[in-house]
Simulated assay, not measured.
Amino acid sequence: MRIRMRIRNKINRHFLMIFCVMLLLSSGCAQKEENITFRGVIEDITENSILVTVTGDSTDFDKASVDISHAERKVQLSVGQGVEITILPEIRESYPVQVTGIEIRPINQKISAQEAKAMIDGEEEVIILDVRTRSEYQAGHIEGSVLLPNTEIKEKAAQVLPDQNAKILIYCRSGNRSAQAAKLLLEMGYTNVYDFGGIIDWPYGIVQ
């Protein structure tokens, strides 16, 4: 009799454990997959999606077609723009993979002097931003550049750079202040920022 009772109790405990597991799964208490964040460069834009080439090794895919129909956008989307994207964990296998965007944020894009020169000479309007001191600017600057010293960005950016979606190319003397300025402008809401380093590496002419 006692043996039967022990067997019955074990069976009851076994079914109780199964019931608890099923209850957890059905109530959504099971651990959920986390959202995925990666960085990339926009290659193409359609009405509800963007094609992105992934930079870095944060994901297993090198390109993604991102559904942006319901994504929060903190950037004006343009081809060539560097972005950080958070997506849902569900990845639909294809090439490129298809994913659903949650949030899109701008990132500072580091470019070479040659790439900056090509942008300046191109058809699209750009702002060349010099973030050195006034005395450095007067000693020699890139033709057409606008002076906004790094230390004055917080106070004067809205006046000097009223369009937060404009394409801004930033330089300083050696590249340190330009990187700081690019980061600050992005934090202030500017969406299309490029850092091309220092004027000491600018192989083209300057003016006084």
Rank of each mutant, 00 (worst) to 15 (best):
K154Q: 14
D163K: 09
F38N: 03
A64S: 13
V75K: 04
I42T: 02
V97K: 05
G82H: 05
T46G: 07
V193C: 06
L147M: 03
P203E: 06
E124S: 13
S135H: 10
I85Y: 12
N176T: 07
D57K: 15
N176K: 11
S145V: 04
G56K: 06
Q208D: 06
G80T: 06
G144H: 06
N176A: 09
S112W: 05
I18E: 13
Y171D: 04
D67M: 07
E84Q: 15
I128Y: 03
I11K: 14
W202L: 02
E33V: 05
S78E: 14
S174K: 09
F15P: 00
E143L: 12
N165Q: 14
I50K: 04
V41N: 03
I127G: 01
Y137A: 02
M1R: 13
L148A: 01
P203V: 01
Y95P: 00
G101R: 02
E152M: 10
D163L: 07
G28K: 05
V160P: 01
G101K: 03
V193F: 05
V207Y: 02
E155Q: 15
I107H: 06
M22A: 14
Q98H: 11
A113N: 09
V83T: 05
D121H: 01
I18W: 10
V99W: 01
Q208F: 00
H70C: 00
S78R: 14
Q98F: 10
S135D: 13
I91F: 05
L88T: 14
T86D: 10
Y204H: 05
A166V: 07
M5L: 15
R73D: 07
I68Q: 02
A179G: 12
E125P: 01
R13V: 09
D60G: 14
V52C: 08
N12S: 13
V207S: 09
K167H: 09
R105E: 15
I45E: 06
V160C: 01
A182E: 03
G56I: 04
S65W: 00
L185R: 04
L25N: 11
N176L: 00
S49H: 09
E155M: 13
E155N: 14
N192G: 12
G40T: 02
G175S: 02
K156W: 08
Y190T: 08
W202Q: 03
L88Y: 12
A158S: 15
